[in-house]
């Protein structure tokens, strides 16, 4: 009732403008804040974990880009899984002659993450140029492949988490854990102490999300890291599928 009124009320008139404004402000604010903190971390010194200011900005750009992708595709789709489980409408999805994981992951698209994608992309290009990267064919190809594999990793992490809604009802808390931990990707992984570096490489593959693609963009990529990234991506994707099938065994079509 109230929603219907709201939808038609005065506030709804400015729906699109206000949403765009809010998203732009959020992206600008987050980016400004991140740059500010990064500048604090550099202090008087010239490097962070062996990365120069411009190089570190490429990492930040990748983070912003991936965060935008999360808001555009991952979050809207995967939060519907939670809703489906809560309302018991997952039944209908499971009865459709389409792969349920695909159906649940590619249903909707939210334009509000696009400013983040654009800002991240712009930051990568500008920072890479100022860091003196020479984009030749091989570099670009490697960067694109790594970016794809980091997107796949990110997707798999999100999907696994969304699938836990089969057990935990209020899973959006859990997605917050992931988002919080992924914030670590704002900085090059070498900036962390050894223990955390190991954790962010082997347990929660944050390193593969931003640091490894950034290396490639800066022309410092190496074949072993490229290969490792692809392996991790394939493993995560496979794992997410297995996990989904496992979770479905516990799905007891919620009534009411």
């Amino acid at each position: 009732m109230l929603r219907r009124f709201w939808a038609t009320s005065l506030a709804a008139d400015l729906e699109y403008q206000v949403n765009v404004l809010i998203e732009l402000l959020a992206v600008a604010g987050n980016l400004a804040g991140s740059l500010f903190v990064l500048s604090l971390l550099f202090g008087q010194g010239g490097s962070l974990g062996g990365w120069s200011w411009e190089e570190a900005l490429v990492v930040l750009g990748l983070y912003t880009l991936l965060d935008g992708i999360t808001s555009t595709v991952l979050q809207p789709n995967l939060s519907t899984i939670v809703t489906h489980v809560q309302n018991g409408t997952l039944d209908f999805v499971l009865l459709k002659p389409v792969d349920s994981q695909f159906w649940l992951s590619a249903r909707t698209f939210s334009p509000w993450g696009l400013p983040g994608v654009a800002a991240g992309f712009a930051l990568i290009v500008v920072a890479a140029a100022r860091a003196g990267a020479r984009p030749d064919g091989a570099t670009v190809a490697a960067a694109l492949v790594l970016l794809l594999s980091s997107t796949v990793i990110l997707y798999s992490l999100w999907f696994v988490l969304a699938a836990t809604s089969i057990w935990f009802v209020k899973v959006w808390n859990a997605t917050e854990v992931l988002r919080a931990a992924l914030v670590a990707g704002r900085y090059p992984v070498s900036a962390y102490p050894v223990a955390l570096r190991t954790f962010f490489t082997f347990v929660l593959p944050v390193a593969f999300l931003t640091t490894v693609p950034a290396e490639a963009i800066l022309g410092r990529g190496s074949a072993p890291w490229l290969l490792a990234s692809l392996v991790v991506a394939a493993f995560c994707l496979f794992g997410s599928r297995k996990f989904w099938q496992f979770a479905l065994r516990f799905y007891t079509s919620a009534s009411s």
């Binding site: 009124f5 038609t8 008139d13």
Partner: peptide, 16 residues
């Protein structure tokens, strides 16, 4: 109640 009169769809929203 005062209810805003709006046609459904994007066209309606724009016109509105």
């Amino acid at each position: 109640y005062r209810v805003a009169d709006k046609q459904p769809g994007i066209g309606g929203t724009l016109r509105h």
